[in-house]
Design a protein around this nucleic acid. Sequence first.
DNA 1: GCGCGTGTTTGTCAAAGCGCAAACTCGCCT
DNA 2: AGGCGAGTTTGCGCTTTGACAAACACGCGC
Lengths: 233, 233
Amino acid sequence: MTGLDRTLIAGLETFRGLSEQALDRVLVHARSARHPKGSEIFSQGETAENFYLLLSGHIRVVRTSPEGHQVIARYINEGELFGIAVAMGRTSFPASAVAAVDCVALAWPNREWAELQTLFPAFGANAYQTIGARLQETQAQVMEMSTEQVEQRIAHALLRLVKQAGRKTADGIEIDFPITRQDIAEMTGTTLHTVSRLLSAWEQRGLVRSGRQKVVVTDAHGLMLVAEHRRRD
Amino acid sequence: MTGLDRTLIAGLETFRGLSEQALDRVLVHARSARHPKGSEIFSQGETAENFYLLLSGHIRVVRTSPEGHQVIARYINEGELFGIAVAMGRTSFPASAVAAVDCVALAWPNREWAELQTLFPAFGANAYQTIGARLQETQAQVMEMSTEQVEQRIAHALLRLVKQAGRKTADGIEIDFPITRQDIAEMTGTTLHTVSRLLSAWEQRGLVRSGRQKVVVTDAHGLMLVAEHRRRD
DNA sequence: GCGCGTGTTTGTCAAAGCGCAAACTCGCCT
DNA sequence: AGGCGAGTTTGCGCTTTGACAAACACGCGC
């Protein structure tokens, strides 16, 4: 017995509609592990043996091009599945997963995927919904990169981060994990220099406050106007 | 009886592993329709009532931004599923589908999705594999847009088109449907002007021959070098 | 408390590629 | 046959943003 308790995963979107017994069954082959900040949970190109669920923390999913350019494909939040190469019929991971902060994640051997899907159709449906949603998001990102200027893209990226991982503070909403200018650049397809310049400009205008690995959005509405490329009404 | 014959779909990747009886069952609720060149099979934002399979022709999947910018998300080839909003748990189409040439497509009512998936697990698996593959492609596109220059992006796009829909001709490989500079621009996030200039330059260098709504790649290897941003060895 | 490294700011410069504009050229329709 | 319109080519100026460089600052670890 691993000691994993069903309350770990009860209430998660992914397992919605599953009975207590079902949750127990789900956990039978799950293994929990701690991943210190900065460590790789899995690595691009590596053979996929497991799929994962993030219990706590934040994870960066990073793709590296043959020439060494890095792109941050997404951030994984608590409660989300990740590394589900198996669901896409892949045998290797198309990206790496790096812990943005200390994380705890569950891992299941890939063979459990088919198993759980058969036993609990609701689980399969939820999981594929997740993939569908990610396809949508990614296509939206392509759209954004095609049609928007760097300033709008960065504004949109910040707003998305704030929505996904925002934490209210005294003077605004702070992104809940350490994030560098370089990270933001890799999310938006630009350079850390440009990000730095824009954040500085926004700080002047009172839209954000930012520091070392930290961004606080102080005027979300104002930033929204920037994202839509309009001046404040 | 609709007269749809199982040979229409036998041999397609999507239905691999299905028996003849299964194929017959699949077709029971399918309706075949012809879509003249330029017509919309479905429209962005519209409630999704059906999902589709392209029997013949080529389809452009187009997303339009609120500001009216268009982006071509992908081209659908013969034998591929499209408009599978239902598989992603969506109730409306996130993009429009336009016939690039005269097309014939099968349509199933959405309720058949769950049905077929239950009856024929192999069908479900193939379908979700398709979505997974598209997510991969789309993420690769984001990567490309983040790290490559316009010239490389266009070269890559052409090579992809040639691979998906190339037809050998006397002097090279021709893209098998009418495609404008504007279309290529909308695939790569640039302008028709830039595309035109580059195609002209490439024509000088003997890499392509192009004309009105037509592109022939005459030196795929040379174009590959352009795509990788290297001069010919 | 100090030093060092990582992350950030800021400046200058260059150029990719976009916007605008105008001319041109096929094909097709009448 | 001729005209029309969609699609294409090309020129030019200019903005955005990347590249390079250098200085700076914060915070951690010793």
